[in-house]
Amino acid sequence: MKVVAYYRVSTKRQGESGLGLEAQREYVETAAQANGWEVVSEYTDVNVSGSVHPLERPEASKAFAHGLPVVVAKLDRLSRDVEHIAGLMKRADFKVATMPHAKTLELHLYAMLAQQEREFISQRTKEALQKLADRAENGDKDAQQKVANRSVALAKGRTKENQAKGGESTKAKASAFAESIRDTLELCVLKGTRTLQGVADCLNDKGVPTANGGKWQPMQVKRVMERLSLSF
Rank of each mutant, 00 (worst) to 15 (best):
K165E: 10
E38C: 07
N162W: 15
A178Y: 01
E22M: 14
E83W: 13
Y43Q: 04
K2S: 12
E56G: 01
V28I: 15
E16T: 07
E56S: 09
Q33P: 03
L21Y: 12
N149L: 14
A23H: 14
F177K: 06
V28M: 09
G167V: 02
L129A: 00
A31Q: 01
A114D: 11
A102C: 03
A164V: 03
G87R: 01
A60S: 13
Q163A: 13
L196W: 09
A31I: 01
K156R: 15
A211C: 03
M1E: 06
L228H: 09
N35Q: 09
C188I: 05
Q144F: 05
A211G: 01
T11D: 10
M89V: 04
L113H: 04
V40H: 04
A174H: 12
A153L: 09
T104F: 03
V70G: 04
M1P: 12
K222M: 14
V9W: 07
G36T: 05
Q33L: 15
E83H: 14
E186D: 08
Q197W: 07
T193Y: 08
E59H: 12
N47P: 01
E22F: 13
W37Q: 04
A111N: 00
G18W: 14
G36V: 06
H108C: 02
R25V: 12
D183I: 09
T195N: 04
A176Y: 07
L132V: 00
G213R: 10
V46H: 01
L203D: 04
R124H: 02
L196G: 03
S175C: 06
Y110A: 01
P54S: 06
E56Q: 09
R77K: 06
L203P: 06
L105W: 12
C202F: 11
A86G: 06
E29Q: 13
A148R: 01
M89Y: 00
V199T: 14
G18K: 14
L75V: 07
Y27M: 08
S41M: 11
G67W: 06
E16F: 07
I121Q: 09
A133R: 14
I85W: 00
E226K: 14
E179N: 10
E42H: 13
A34P: 04
A86R: 15
M112C: 14
F232H: 15
G67E: 02
P54Q: 02
E117F: 08
G198R: 11
G166P: 09
G207F: 11
L190I: 02
H101P: 00
L55Y: 03
V48R: 10
A211M: 12
G139L: 04
K156M: 14
K160G: 01
F94G: 02
T195Q: 07
E26A: 14
M112A: 15
K206S: 13
A102G: 02
E59C: 10
A23T: 14
D140Y: 02
E59I: 03
K95W: 00
V28Q: 08
M112V: 15
H66D: 05
D81G: 07
